[in-house]
Amino acid sequence: MDWGFVLTQTMTQAVGVTAIIYILAAIGLNVQFGYAGLLNFGQVAFVAAGSYAVGVIVLTFDLSLWLAIVVAVVVATILALLLGIPTLRLRADYLAIVTIAASELFRLTVRSIAFKDVLGGAQGLNGKLGQQFHDTNPLPADFQSLPVLSWTRQDLWVVIVGWILIAAFTLLVWLLVRSPWGRVVKGIREDEDAVVSLGKNAFVYKLQALILGGIIAAFGGIVWAVAKQSVQPDTFQPDFTFFAYTILLLGGAARVFGPIVGGIIFWFLLAGTGEFLGQAIQAGWIDFLQPTDVGNIRFVLMGSGLIALMVFRPQGIFGDRKELALDAR
């Protein structure tokens, strides 16, 4: 059994492109759910909006990737307004219902044959989507690989910029939640009527949180499209949103570094168990499993781990148990 290989693969995935995409989505959820208490179950739609903005602008219309980023932000904002305006004046559960339905509606619409010319139908959009980005790669052309983390030259550049984005959005969230704006938003999470009775327009704050969280998630979608050079409608399934929630709760909701810690641990465990089981089956250590079972088994293990977490540390890794207890009045 090649332990070095298991470790390399696991580490690479724990901080790799996929982890980055999920962490960005989870940072967005942290703004929406962690701080503002908004149950957005359709975060994947914002990610898809970011990916499709890149796909459509760059591939379908043959325009600049930088323009696509602006379009992604605009589309995410519009999506947040569409979802938020009718629901945010109502009870909290309405947003949850509408967002989960909307995210599936979004996926089924973009993959439909009706818009195949623009959105690519079920095949999605494939081609040199991120070329403009990859052309800016400052790494030496003869770059081989880092010692432990095995990325290609192209992936490493995506990973570097991805982590810069994560750092930038984390800083933004940190600044916001320490500000009077963050105070109002946290107040709304605790008791909306109390905040309204003090003269704050809760609706506007909730809308702002939904938009901001959506834009951050859309950047996850942009990274996805640029890294994979492809936009696949069926990757934007509801389970994406639930993994993003898992990451957030794992790290600790309403903690600035929660999504980062949660994301790395989530992908470390998921990739680690996958690689380990794969190797163990190959080496003949485990004979009651097929290599094809690995994908499912690791989710079973992950689920068990999450249950254990909720039992022993419900506040997440970074959370404060004292705060959690205050809720149980």
């Binding site: 946290k186 003090l198 205050l326």
Partner: peptide, 16 residues
């Protein structure tokens, strides 16, 4: 009473 439990006393006041 609608004290915002998971916020500090001073943050409650500042909100006003």
């Amino acid at each position: 009473t609608k004290a915002l439990s998971r916020m500090t006393v001073i943050d409650n006041m500042r909100l006003g």
